[in-house]
Design a protein around this nucleic acid. Structure first.
Length: 560
DNA sequence: CCTGGGCGCGCG
DNA sequence: AAAGCGCGCGCCCAGG
């Protein structure tokens, strides 16, 4: 059973569909009563809810304590289908995206635009239904409709999960965070000021470079001061600095580390993103806004708060509520394992057995040490050509011809300007017009060597992108299916008020916030979910996807 | 004053 | 000074 939901200002239309997509029943009701209706349907027949944009609907449902089992997000699935079938006519305009967080101040341009009669996002219920039918017909015409259906279901489940995580938040301890900052940087300064240890470090730098007015935060000033001190550098990046032999290096690296912590996750960040709790039974909450499908490969992006870059330094501030635990699980080496699965490479599948794939490569004689094996494998996934990774490539290609063949083929396609696809059918975009123009210019009769070199460079760059796309994208869809299966299983655990719930997702890592007595069971469900997702996505292919799981009170203790 | 690009660095 | 992919964000700085 499917039910289409369309928001019409303060009204909502709900169309219950028969199997052939004809309308079996139609309900119109005030928007405020939607949670009530949804809750009722969830108890009755738990339909698949079809709507334009999950962000437009579920925040209201969650606020009322209502969660749906499954949905189809037409905005997200439409994007995937458009990339898969670029030659089909797709309706314009595309609806605007709805963000979860606070809206930025409207610009003058927005104010002018809003004076026109704006259509409801996604249109009428009939419009939404028509788009749904068009998408279903498109899926049916795909080479592998089953895989594509799975991808769209997983993408939509991801949208539900993202809004739920935003609603629940990641449990945080502002006091622990403040203690970390104070220990690293010194006491919190007045707004705009530098904390004591950072200021002291800047002073040492000025001293050792004999540059009394230098602001080490300015790369331009810093580079000039370094060169005046006789150092041969062309960038102020820490990679370059590390190689220098000069007394300023140590305080400079320390300054950079501290300055980074202050600006990225300092007190200002905490005030902006971590809501203080007034309930002693609950910690504070960091509410990351995830953007499913925000990365071209299918990974999630984030908007505001930088949830995907939580530095290890401050992870001790991620703390379970009293009486609760964090179940932290990390899928080790998910990308090379995904490559083994999608390529059907028996040898690489054999190496994947056990918990450490890189050690498996060593045992297979591909490399002498684990680190060498890792460098070689990542080099194959990213397209390394020089250095240690480049040197190890021939042996890797000889040992795993099918696995390396998949990425090499993807690279060649990209170099020609073609598109590639993931295992479930997410397509890459073609290169931009400027890329095509550069290739065309290079193939003109009088093209200069410089023009040809530039075109070759761009072709190789695009080949590395498509090479990585097939693996990163396939790993991302496995992770998404893992998440969706885990959400389904968690929904059946515990009392509604005390239910374990997902609070964090980081490409190949999840955190579930769970009442302590259920934590062991949750850990088992996390593992079972990945096993089930692997089977659903790839079938029974004999590639292991092991998990590192920890039940901890704070995230830092998971020690990945 | 605001905006956009480049740099640098955090994460996978 | 990154070799080798994908991101977001804060800072500086130049230009409008």
């Amino acid at each position: 059973m499917e039910s289409v939901v369309a928001v019409w200002g303060e009204q909502v239309d709900v169309l219950d569909l028969a199997a052939d997509h004809s309308v079996a029943a139609r309900t119109r009701l005030p928007r405020t009563r939607l949670p009530e209706l949804v809750a009722e349907r969830e108890r009755e027949n738990a339909p698949r809810w079809v709507w334009t944009d999950t962000n437009q609907i579920t925040p209201q449902l969650l606020a009322a304590g209502v969660r749906v089992q499954r949905c189809l997000d037409l905005r997200l699935s439409g994007t995937i289908l458009q990339h898969a079938f670029p030659d089909r006519p797709w309706p314009e305009p595309h609806w605007p995206t709805v963000t979860l967080g606070e809206q930025p101040e409207p610009t003058l341009l927005d104010a002018l635009a809003s004076q026109e009669d704006a259509p409801a996002p996604g249109g009428s219920a009939e419009d939404v239904l028509a788009e749904h039918v068009r998408q279903q017909e498109t899926v049916a015409a795909a080479a592998q409709p089953g895989r594509l259906r799975l991808l769209l279901a997983a993408e939509s489940a991801g949208a539900l999960i993202a809004t739920e995580i935003y609603q629940d938040g990641l449990p945080w301890d502002r006091q622990v965070h403040d203690e970390i900052l104070t220990a690293e940087l010194g006491a919190r300064p007045a707004p705009g000021g530098r904390p004591e240890r950072l200021a002291a470090s800047a002073e040492v730098i000025r001293d050792r470079l004999e540059a009394p007015t230098l602001n080490p935060d300015s790369p331009v000033e810093l580079l000039r001061a370094l060169r005046r001190a006789g150092l041969d550098v062309s960038t102020t990046s820490k990679w370059a600095l590390r190689e220098l032999d000069h007394p300023v290096v140590e305080p400079l690296l320390e300054f950079k580390r501290m300055a980074r912590l202050l600006s990225a996750n300092g007190w200002a960040w905490m005030d902006a993103w971590v809501a203080a709790s007034t309930d002693p039974a609950r910690r504070d909450r960091f509410r990351p806004e995830y953007v499913p499908g925000g990365v071209i490969t299918g990974r999630w992006a984030t908007s505001g708060g930088g949830a995907l870059q939580l530095p290890k330094q401050i992870r001790a501030a991620v703390r379970a509520d009293p009486g609760w635990r964090l179940v932290v699980a990390d899928a080790a080496q998910i990308e090379p394992r995904a490559l083994a699965a999608m390529s059907g490479d028996r040898g690489l599948a054999d190496a994947s057995r056990g918990t450490d794939l890189y050690q498996g490569l060593v045992d297979a004689g591909v490399a002498a040490t684990r680190n060498e094996a890792k460098v070689a494998m990542l080099g194959a996934l990213y397209g390394a050509t020089t250095g240690a990774a480049g040197q190890l490539m021939p042996r890797l290609i000889r040992t795993y011809p099918r696995a390396t063949g998949v990425v090499e083929e993807a690279a060649r396609t990209g170099e020609r300007g073609g598109v590639v696809r993931t295992w479930l059918g997410r397509f890459s975009v073609p290169p931009p017009d400027t890329w095509q123009e550069a290739q065309a210019a290079a193939s003109q009769p009088g093209a200069t060597p410089a023009v040809e070199a530039k075109a070759r460079q761009q072709a190789r760059d695009w080949g590395r992108f498509t090479r990585n796309f097939v693996v990163q994208g396939t790993a991302a869809e496995l992770a998404l299916c893992w998440l969706a299966e885990l959400r389904r299983r968690l929904a059946g655990l515990g009392d509604p008020a005390e239910r374990p719930h997902l609070v964090y997702f980081l490409h190949d890592e999840v955190i579930v916030h769970s009442p302590e007595p259920l934590a062991e069971q949750v850990a088992a469900e996390v593992a079972a979910s990945l096993a089930e997702a692997t089977r659903i996505v790839f079938g029974r292919i004999g590639v292991d996807f092991p998990l590192q799981t920890a039940i901890v009170e704070n995230y830092a203790d998971a020690e990945h």
